[in-house]
Design a protein around this nucleic acid. Sequence first.
RNA 1: GGCCUGAUGGCGGAGUGGUUACGCAGCGGACUGCAAAUCCGUGCACCCGAGUUCGAUUCUCGGUCAGGCCUCCA
Length: 460
Amino acid sequence: MSLRLYDTMARAKRTFVPIDPARVTMYVCGPTVYNFAHIGNARPVVVFDVLFRLLRHIYGEDHVVYAANVTDVDDKINLKATQEGVPISTITDRYLDAYHADMAALSALRPTFEPRATATMNAIIAMIERLVEGGSAYAAEGHVLFNTQAYRDYGKLSRRSLDDMIAGARVDVAPYKQNPADFVLWKPSKPGEPVWESPFGPGRPGWHIECSAMIEQTLGIPIDIHGGGNDLIFPHHENEMAQGVCAGHRDGYANYWMHNGFLNMGEQKMSKSLGNVQLVHELVKQWPPEALRWALLASHYRQPLAWTDEVIGQARSALDTMYGALGRAEAIEVEPGAPSEAFLEALLDDLNTPKAIAELHALAHRLETGTPAERASAKSEMLANGALLGFLQSPPSTWFQGGADVELTARIEELIAQRVAARTAKDWALADSIRAELTALDVEVMDGPTGATWKLKERA
RNA sequence: GGCCUGAUGGCGGAGUGGUUACGCAGCGGACUGCAAAUCCGUGCACCCGAGUUCGAUUCUCGGUCAGGCCUCCA
């Protein structure tokens, strides 16, 4: 069974064949660091983290190179820096740190490279120069623009023709553009904004060229896989490809284009104006981060995802089941094993995480009911599968009791001990009153044949 | 207006040309002092119309509805 990925260019699943199996390359458009990441930002990070893990499993950890850019030059960053009266680096450092913390909470591995736009300026300028020299870009009024007529296949990825774009143009076209679809590679900075010297005059790069230059510098063009949210297909990825190809990579830019579906707040789009933006930063305080990751992966990455408390709650229930089964199997010693076949096959089929999760449930069930040999293999496979998906790597006690601090834990343990004594004495009234006390502390007791265990019911 | 997705049970969500996963919630039972967890069992769906076919939820066409992109939004 080989890996099959849905390629936006082909609008079909294609068998994945890397250019060089010893160095598989993947690039995903990363954050613009001007604010905390919201849960919608986290979806592609988690989705492509799963792909990263899967590729490492297939080709070996040292044979997959994953780059995600950090856009640290941007109008919104400039605005925020001006408002706070600080240099842009104060803003970008602050939110990049927060971004890293949030994504780590969601168990996303760090990409191999995280190039920053401000540290890639030479490569960006060099690429623009090549485009100008090659005749596919032109200078106009302090700007440098890409000439979309220079790339015959412009519109191929997003399946729109230049004629359609002109006909459907809703915005006023800047007068210095030769074609309405032409886009900015370099533009003059406004007074007070960060500025870089270049052969085209002082200014700063456009967004699209950043990604192309970073890919060329960190991974080399063409790359195997290029990912991002499906809102980036046009114009961002279309433009990236046009630039990349015209800058000397006639053989191609990216061999597989992958795009995740959008995350919505229930029926509505998440937006500032609706006031329904949920920051990862806040969500991880209200829910176990692993439940957030589970909720993100419980539906297929290309489907739209309606993000609700119920979806997160169901994810937490599922993890209760998983960790419950593992907790009852702690006595079973297992060697680190390989992922189960059904699980792997699900992921190999264009990252079918819902199906892979169903396999996790099947294993949990076998872990509860199987023969000793079946239980051992089920536990081993659950842990291996979990590692591939970024789940189940904590001790079960941490999952159930991790929200309690030392003091609370001691108090709970004391009550539990009292209750065990009461039950031994068959003093049911006392046992029930202690349970009521524990319930008030948001603790659920589970009596077992060898004593009692407990878990925290809610967070926040 | 152009382009592109999607429509599956009470909810979430896979998949398939012929017996429709899995989870949550529900119901009955086992276990339990009572619970919880777990286990056993169980009811419930493939947007509408036409076509292809022995047979369509699955393929084709049309329609309806919903969403996205066409403004440096993941």
